[in-house]
């Protein structure tokens, strides 16, 4: 959890808006540090978290969260966190060893044309199960985090099917259960025109209430500024409607710092 980002977004684990649909995107930079931020943020807030880690192993997320002061293993044992390890589970599905047909959350690997219904069933059941901790208290509102939704495009799932999946998740988690969704997608390079990726990006931006876009510096590579982050508030109620702000950022060992453009300590 990065306190500086919390103050930019004016949210904290004690008070955050529910029903938010947050889209993280990146191009020529890595926005995965934001996923780690949100993972530790919602675990601290006591939410029931469902994490679809499609591109990295559990140990990776666990090691990073340890540095940010949250233990994923404990959260998993307590039932607060449901973790789907896409990479590890995919081998069995692709090499067709597991016999149970079409009941797996990752069945899209076998028949990508069929859509993501099974994955949605998995999400739905995991946010509705075990809603109480051992003391009988209820977990906070459910949260769905997806690390890299665009990897599904590489696996042959169509952009339409992915957008259907996100709409279903939004209806269930954001509207019905008043929870939050955080999704990371990777944007293509500017000169590349990929239909599926563009469609996915546009659809998600249309749906979202807050978009964070991370990009490399337009002026080129720099060692002390890792890139720029554009914050785009799209929520409708308050004055922040449709406002955009750009910050430069630098990722550290245990956090990240955000500063206004041109105010890096390397320059001043």
């Amino acid at each position: 959890m990065f306190p500086e980002l919390n103050s930019i977004l004016s949210s904290s684990p004690d008070s955050f808006r529910s029903g938010d649909f947050i889209v993280l995107s990146d191009r020529q930079a890595d926005a995965s540090f934001l996923i780690h931020h949100y993972l530790s943020f919602y675990l601290r807030a006591g939410c029931k978290v469902c994490f679809l880690g499609l591109v990295q192993s559990f140990s990776h997320y666990s090691a990073v969260s340890q540095r940010l002061g949250v233990s994923l293993t404990q959260a998993r044992e307590k039932g607060q966190l449901v973790f789907l390890e896409g990479l590890k589970d995919s081998i069995g599905v692709i090499s067709q060893e597991e016999s149970s047909q079409s009941k797996l959350p990752l069945s899209y690997l076998r028949s990508p044309g069929a859509g993501l219904e099974c994955l949605f069933k998995f999400v739905e059941s995991s946010v509705s199960q075990n809603t109480e901790n051992e003391d009988g208290e209820k977990w906070g509102p459910p949260v769905l985090l997806i690390d890299d939704l665009s990897v599904l495009l590489s696996l042959g799932v169509s952009a339409g099917a992915i957008l259907d999946f996100t709409l279903y998740c939004q209806a269930t988690i954001c509207s019905e259960l008043q929870g939050n969704i955080v999704i990371l997608v990777r944007r293509e390079e500017e000169d590349v025109d990929d239909e599926g990726s563009n469609l996915l990006q546009k659809g998600l931006i249309h749906q979202c209430s807050l978009a964070l876009h991370v990009e490399g510096l337009p002026t080129g590579y720099c060692r002390d500024i890792h890139g720029q982050m554009e914050v785009w508030w799209r929520s409708r109620e308050d004055a922040m409607y449709n406002q955009r702000k750009v910050f430069h950022y630098k990722v550290h060992d245990k956090g990240a710092s955000f500063f206004a453009r041109g105010t890096s300590s390397a320059l001043l």
Partner: peptide, 18 residues
């Protein structure tokens, strides 16, 4: 077979990680 190589690499990465 647009997704053959990417799917292969995804599965290979899964294999390598374990």
């Amino acid at each position: 077979h647009c997704h053959a190589l990417t799917t292969f690499l995804y599965a290979l990465r899964g294999l390598l990680r374990t």
